[in-house]
Simulated assay, not measured.
Amino acid sequence: MKIGDKLLKELSKKYEPDRMVSKKFGRYDIAFKTDDGGNPVLLFIGNENPEGKIIGQRFGRVLIKDKEGKIIKDHWDNRGKT
């Protein structure tokens, strides 16, 4: 599974720092963890089970910044099934 352009656009927004955000995205349930800057860094996408856990895929974000805070590298890696 790849992350599509619409989902990447949603994940490029800033959110509340150091939180787990859950929402519905199309036919999928998504949950993501944000870093101290409000950037999503860990994504779970799939279907939510009755306990509230997402069964599907897990993605991790590589976000590398230089000394001035400018983003050098930004991409998502598939980390496998959850």
Rank of each mutant, 00 (worst) to 15 (best):
Lys70Asn: 15
Phe59Asp: 04
Leu8Ala: 02
Met20Leu: 14
Gly37His: 07
Arg27Pro: 02
Pro50Leu: 12
Asp74Gly: 03
Phe32Tyr: 15
Arg58Phe: 02
Gly56Pro: 10
Lys24Ala: 00
Asp18Trp: 13
Ser22His: 03
Gly69His: 07
Phe44His: 15
Met1Leu: 09
Thr34Ala: 12
Gly38Val: 06
Asn78Tyr: 06
His75Lys: 03
Val62Asp: 05
Lys9Met: 06
Asp29Leu: 09
Asn49Gly: 07
Asp74Ala: 02
His75Ile: 00
Met1His: 09
Gly52His: 11
Thr82Phe: 15
Glu10Asn: 01
Ile64Arg: 12
Lys53Glu: 10
Asn39Phe: 09
Ile3His: 03
Lys53Thr: 03
Asn39Arg: 09
Met20Ile: 12
Tyr15Val: 03
Glu10Ser: 04
Gly69Trp: 07
Asp36Glu: 13
Pro40Asn: 03
Arg79Val: 01
Ile71Ser: 07
Arg19Ser: 13
Lys70Val: 10
Met20Trp: 15
Asp66Gly: 13
Gly38Phe: 12
Val21Gln: 04
Ile3Glu: 06
Tyr15Ala: 05
Lys33Leu: 14
Asn47His: 13
Asn47Gly: 06
Leu7Met: 11
Tyr28Ala: 11
Leu8Val: 00
Asp5Thr: 05
Gly69Ile: 05
Trp76His: 04
Leu63Arg: 08
Gly60Pro: 00
Thr34Ser: 08
Asn78Trp: 03
Gly69Arg: 06
Glu68Thr: 12
Ile45Pro: 02
Asp29Trp: 10
